Amino acid sequence: MEQITNKNFKKGLWLFLILFIVFLALNLFIGVYLYPLALYHEVIDILIPCLIYLLVTKKPILSTLKLDKKINRKSVIIVFQLFLISFLLKLGINYLVMLTGAIDPSRVTMEVMELAPSFLTLFFAVAIMPSFLEEIIIRGVVLDQFQDTSLWQGAIMTGLLFGFMHVDIGQLGYTTALGILMGAIVIATGSLWGGVLFHFLNNFTSVAALSFLQLIENTLPNGFEQMVTEAQAQSTANIGIVQEAYSFVFAVICLGIGILLSVHYIKKLQKVNVATKEIKLEEGVLEENENEGNESHIKVSWKSLFFNIPFFLIVLVYVGINLIR
């Protein structure tokens, strides 16, 4: 068994930086030379680099990616509850983002929808493929190195990296929040499948909702969409400071409740899985060293987690890309 001391968050950050740069380079290449494959870019810019890394380092694929561990029924229920709670987080964050008036959180999703020739293609490209491939790179390959951090340190840092991975600054807020939740789920359960399930539920509901709205839009009479757009523009122009203050308070309340509930259910998820491990230990199904998990991590300060060279370079690359775009 590989020693935990051989896996630390700085190695994880350096690894992410390399994979992030490769991801951006391949993404650009696909956009310029292989545009018809743009919907499936993650196979090229995420899956292939990750597989190369795993093969070169000779790491056991299933255990490194945490695909060898199942999640129990109670954990599945809690993951679903966290998914429902995530709507509060997304609502609060997107409300705050939209109050700036400069960023549209749904822009990228709408662009992807325009590329998809059918709902099935969109379903595969947005709901199925990212749910697995994005989990592999962030909560699989990268998170595997974060064995010297606590649950929340690992979840928050990989959540941020997940947000950076989406590149678009309009998506940074809610993708980071969801990334933190998925990171906490994977760390608490010790299985990537919890993150995959949450990710799929989130992406599927987005695809379904936007597709439904698009379907309704297509059935509306000509000129109706323009009329609605003009009405929205007029309404936005008439919003005063008081209305913006109300919106801000509403967003903060949603966000606050979402955070409190998320923390509660993550703790509940931890307890469920600790109890499951104890039962397996008693039954002799689980060996003692398999139960060490994240409890035996080396203490890492929050300051050292964020104030280091690789994280600084990651932020620099992210900011640079958004300035160029």
Rank of each mutant, 00 (worst) to 15 (best):
M165K: 03
L201H: 10
F87Y: 12
A208K: 09
H297W: 08
E230V: 05
Y40H: 07
Q171D: 10
L210C: 04
I4D: 08
K267H: 14
K277C: 04
L122P: 13
K11D: 13
Y35N: 11
I216N: 06
L255S: 01
L99A: 01
I18Q: 05
I136A: 14
S211K: 04
L89W: 01
M227P: 02
M165R: 03
L88I: 02
V76H: 01
Y95C: 07
L192I: 11
I78L: 05
I71F: 06
S211R: 02
I44H: 09
H166V: 10
A275K: 12
L62I: 08
E282Y: 09
H297C: 13
D68R: 07
Y33E: 00
A237N: 07
M227W: 14
F212T: 12
G195A: 09
I30L: 08
S75A: 13
Q3I: 08
Q145I: 04
T5Q: 14
A188M: 05
Q226A: 06
T236I: 10
F119Y: 12
F20E: 02
S106T: 15
S301E: 09
I18V: 15
I216A: 06
F29Y: 10
T121R: 04
F20G: 01
T158Y: 12
V76K: 11
R107Q: 14
H297R: 15
F119D: 02
G173P: 00
I30K: 07
I309Y: 12
V249T: 01
E288I: 13
S75C: 07
L286W: 11
F164N: 09
G190W: 02
V141P: 03
F123K: 03
A231D: 07
Y318M: 10
F248V: 00
L15Q: 12
F124C: 09
F123G: 03
T158N: 13
F312W: 03
K280H: 13
Q153S: 11
V272T: 10
E134L: 13
F162W: 13
L160T: 15
K69L: 07
L286A: 06
K69M: 05
F311H: 01
V196N: 06
I52G: 08
N94C: 00
N308E: 11
N222G: 02
L17I: 08
P117C: 11
Q81V: 10
L34C: 04
Q214N: 11
V32I: 15
V319T: 04
V22Q: 03
D144G: 05
S206I: 13
Q147Y: 13
P130F: 13
I71D: 04
I30T: 08
S211L: 06
V79R: 00
F311S: 03
Q171R: 11
E290R: 03
V79M: 04
E292S: 12
K66N: 11
I187S: 07
E111R: 10
E288T: 12
A209P: 00
V186Y: 02
